[in-house]
Design a protein around this nucleic acid. Structure first.
Lengths: 224, 224
DNA sequence: CATTATGTTGACAGAATTGTCAATAGGTAT
DNA sequence: ATACCTATTGACAATTCTGTCAACATAATG
């Protein structure tokens, strides 16, 4: 089957993508303890020195994962929150979906690991100013708030224009609750005595959508 | 100074408490990578086999930490959410404070680590029915919702009694957003262009308190 | 004071992890 | 074809981590 001397040779970009994809899947599935070079290599069908070759060190891999997670969050959240149906139930659903597939876990893990990595660094100004990945996250909520606020201004009755700060906190709220829900929502729901997890999660999203619609329209009761 | 043969001898409860306290502090400070028996032992001023002696294995220690974190969450949330001033700004503040000191990080980490531990276990019914720590979390939101709902019913004008489900989701929302905020709030705020983190966090809590007061009272605009 | 029970520790074993290095092999250019 | 570049790998090194074990020390009990 596998003749000796049969190697796959990828472009550096392909190799990096393969490694990052596999690492992401592992983090999502096996939790924080699951980022071992050998495991990643085994799951990707490569040898672990290849990871070192492409990322320099384990820390380099973590840095790349952080950047990628931030980028992914930006893409998904922007897509979910700036579409026309946002603030209807479907819009909220899409925001919650944005954190699925382990992205929330990855972000939480990286946020913690990141504080770790910063510890011990000399406080002097490093080669690049911001923290790694900051360039990606830097303006994500700001961009979303921009789009959303323009829409709210257009939709608001004259004399009742919402403050921009209100829109920012609205976006912040949805992002934070979706994040918290992705990580701890299931256990919260169980602790509230909700039996059907799938159904419970759905109803919570609907309730939240109604709450926000209510707030955004200035007091109109939800339809249902 | 330290004569040879000078040992501290604790009661098992004291020893366990010392170890758990130290481990919690380490998790909060050094992130997920920081739970090494030797580190805990060094920080606690003991030798690492003592941890194995009291908890059997590293997994046993994690189990104990999980139970303790759940208990702590229950205590803090109950205290924060069932006091009279809840749903005012101060009440919300206290809920957010409940997750401070690394509790949110610990819960997130343990939630992930836990899925890890479950993986590999045979799907058949184990010796104890529930997952470890579930006995502690089992009813926390339910208890809070009970207290809160009674108060809402008493305060509501006749004919406008809120549904119990509404109260449950209210509690769920606050818990989820406080959780998400504790872990990723700072980065969200930075990505929204908020300069002063302390001040930004405070204003968000105030805004959220106003939103909830608005919802709970049935449409009254907030004071500010 | 002798005995028992057990909290506590140092030393060691085994496994696993990151990182290094020389050698191999798949493309590409000359 | 030949030469060159570099993606890829197997084997090895060094460190570190969990877990074991016999020995020691401390408190309680007779």
């Amino acid at each position: 089957m596998t003749e000796p001397g049969r190697r796959v040779r990828r472009t550096p970009e392909e190799a990096r993508r393969l490694i990052l994809d596999t690492a992401e899947a592992l983090i999502a599935r096996t939790g924080p303890e699951g980022l071992r070079l050998q495991d990643i290599a085994a799951a990707a069908g490569i040898s672990h020195p290849l990871i070192l070759h492409h990322f320099g060190s384990r820390a380099g891999l973590v840095r790349a994962l952080t950047q990628r997670a931030a980028e992914e969050l930006k893409d998904r959240l922007l897509a979910a929150m700036t579409q026309p149906e946002y603030s209807t139930g479907e819009g909220i659903d899409r925001v919650f979906e944005a954190f699925r597939g382990g992205l929330a876990q990855r972000l939480a893990w990286l946020a913690m690991e990141h504080r770790d990595a910063q510890r011990g660094k000399p406080p002097g100004p490093g080669p690049q100013a911001g923290v790694d990945g900051d360039a990606e996250t830097a303006s994500i909520l700001r961009q979303i708030a921009d789009v959303l606020h323009a829409r709210r201004l257009a939709a608001a009755p004259p004399g009742q224009a919402p403050l921009r700060e209100d829109t920012v906190w609205l976006v912040h709220l949805v992002a934070a609750v979706a994040f918290g829900d992705a990580i701890y929502g299931e256990q919260l729901r169980r602790s509230a005595g909700i039996a059907d997890e799938e159904e419970g999660a759905r109803r919570f999203r609907q309730w939240l959508a109604a709450l926000l619609r209510d707030h955004g329209d200035g007091g109109q009761p939800p339809v249902g």
